[in-house]
Design a binder for these strands. Structure first.
Length: 430
RNA sequence: GUGGGCGUAGCUCAGCUGGUAGAGCUCCGCGUUGUGGUCGCGGCGGUCGCCGGUUCGAAUCCGGUCGCUCACCCCA
């Protein structure tokens, strides 16, 4: 075991048993919902110029400062495995001049993301996200639409007991002023704060709201709230978002302590959590990021989006019944000791290619009993036996559902396929 | 990075106070049978994570190390 290679720390193999439900989440639940809401699929590179995240997500964030997989390529360019999807989508928006398209531009994506953190329940180094970004409009209805989209997605996936927390971070200027005020407050109470909160007062004081440390939480209860400091316009925008959520009958909790760890967020921020997830309770979250596109070299552009973790959604949905990959093989070709293997192989390919059937042939040297067992194990409807018992027949076609079997003799190179195929098709259709 | 729990067969696990490894499931074969199910019998499969120490003898005790896992932190 010691020298056996294994998947890198924090990564996992998606085995056949679980790939079915993962695919279903993306293809049967997410994709149709996005299509109905006017979102188009976008795929950005798995790695990007490191500067994209440094600038877009923020140098001081944990994600950028200590969790990125960054390396130099052969040309000494610093590249980074994408830790999140919003910055790349905004880069693509700016790079391809999407501001010239009818606004807003709605995009969705799905794929792996990378963060070098200590793995634990619900947290991986390579994880999969489904995300949605809508750029080019700051209409509160877009915020509401985006949030409702995620709410419905979670519901459809089976994560029905989630909680939505929502708040507004206001605009940059108020946030900066508030940040100063909060720093002062924290300094006044620094004796009760935990060491790591204390160490980050200058970097990101808002983080203190997230701490689980008791003393810190006591201090934060009485701390000034950003939601009380935002501008009249931002407050009106936020109230409109809430009103639309009410209209959509999406329940929420306004939580003025809600903090997001990425620098680009402005105004609306939200997060869905699930009680059956352990410490990493967030299943999905996001917010508005007016200004990000401009920061990345594009025109001033409003934007809002979210991402949800595929592994977390699935865990929150508590899919108890692990559906075995439904076996739906049409034909299984069994080989007796004296089978004409060449003829069997030809029939196998023709059944697949001419008749479009799913056909498998014996490949493991099993006994006839073992081959029968294998055929029923993979759900074959029809069995073709080549060889026959002691040469009593050249081939036999057995309907595995009814048990009836027809034996064919005198097969010649010219007509064996048609005669077998005729009987196979009759059996498959039944 | 820090702390708790755990590393025995492909999977789930047993193995008390030290005597050089077991079960169930899976897989393969044989018999039974309705060519597949059931049942019966048999087989494949492990340097007990790794290294060192104590001992006549270590899966078991001690130390170290690696890995997994949960939590802190952070986030999806």
């Amino acid at each position: 075991m010691s020298d056996k290679l294994q998947a890198p720390k924090g990564t996992f193999d998606v085995l056949p048993a679980s790939s079915t439900q993962r695919d279903a989440l993306v293809e049967q639940i997410a994709a149709p919902a996005f299509a109905r809401a006017g979102y188009s699929r976008i795929d950005t590179p798995i790695f990007e110029d490191t500067a994209l995240f440094a600038r877009g997500v923020g140098e001081s964030t944990d994600v950028v400062s200590k969790e990125m997989y960054t390396f130099l390529d052969q040309g000494d360019r610093s590249v980074t495995l994408r830790p999140e999807g919003t910055a790349p989508v905004c880069r693509a928006y700016a790079e391809h001049g999407m501001h010239k398209l009818p606004q807003p531009v709605k995009l969705w994506y799905q794929g792996p993301f990378f963060r070098q953190e200590a793995p634990q329940a619900g947290r991986f180094r390579q994880f999969f996200q489904i995300g949605a970004e809508a750029l080019g409009s700051d209409d509160p209805a877009l915020d509401a639409e985006s949030i409702v989209l995620l709410a419905r997605l979670l519901e459809a996936a089976g994560a029905t007991d989630t909680t939505l927390r929502i708040s507004s971070l206001g605009s940059k200027s108020e946030r900066q002023a508030y940040s100063q005020e909060l720093k002062t407050y924290l300094r006044e109470n620094e004796r009760q704060l935990s060491a790591d909160v204390l160490a980050r007062i200058d970097q990101n004081p808002l983080r203190a709201f997230d701490a689980k440390h008791e003393g810190t939480q006591a201090v934060m209860e009485a701390a000034p709230r950003l939601l009380d400091a935002i501008s009249v316009e931002d407050r009106a925008h936020f109230d409109e978002v809430l009103a639309l959520l009410d209209a959509a009958q999406v329940g929420y909790e306004v939580d003025s302590t809600l903090v997001r760890g990425l620098d680009y967020y402005t105004r609306t921020v939200f997060e869905f959590t699930s009680p059956n997830l352990g410490a990493q309770a967030g299943v999905g979250g996001g917010g508005r990021y007016d200004g990000l596109v401009e920061l990345l070299g594009g025109p001033p552009t409003a934007g809002i989006g979210w991402a949800c973790g595929v592994e977390r959604v699935l865990a929150a949905a508590e899919l108890s019944t692990e559906p075995e990959p439904t076996a739906n093989t049409d034909v299984y070709i069994a080989l007796d000791d004296d089978a004409d293997r060449s003829a069997a192989f030809t029939v196998l390919l023709k059944l697949r290619e001419v008749h479009g059937l799913s056909a498998q042939i014996e490949l493991a040297g099993r006994s006839m009993k073992g081959q029968l067992k294998q055929a029923s194990r993979i759900g074959a409807k029809v069995l073709v036996i080549f060889g026959g018992e002691r040469g009593q027949y050249d081939a036999a076609v057995k309907n595995l559902q009814t048990g009836e079997q027809q034996e064919l003799d005198g097969l010649t190179a010219g007509d064996y396929f048609d005669r077998i195929a005729e009987r196979v098709l009759a059996g498959v259709k039944r």
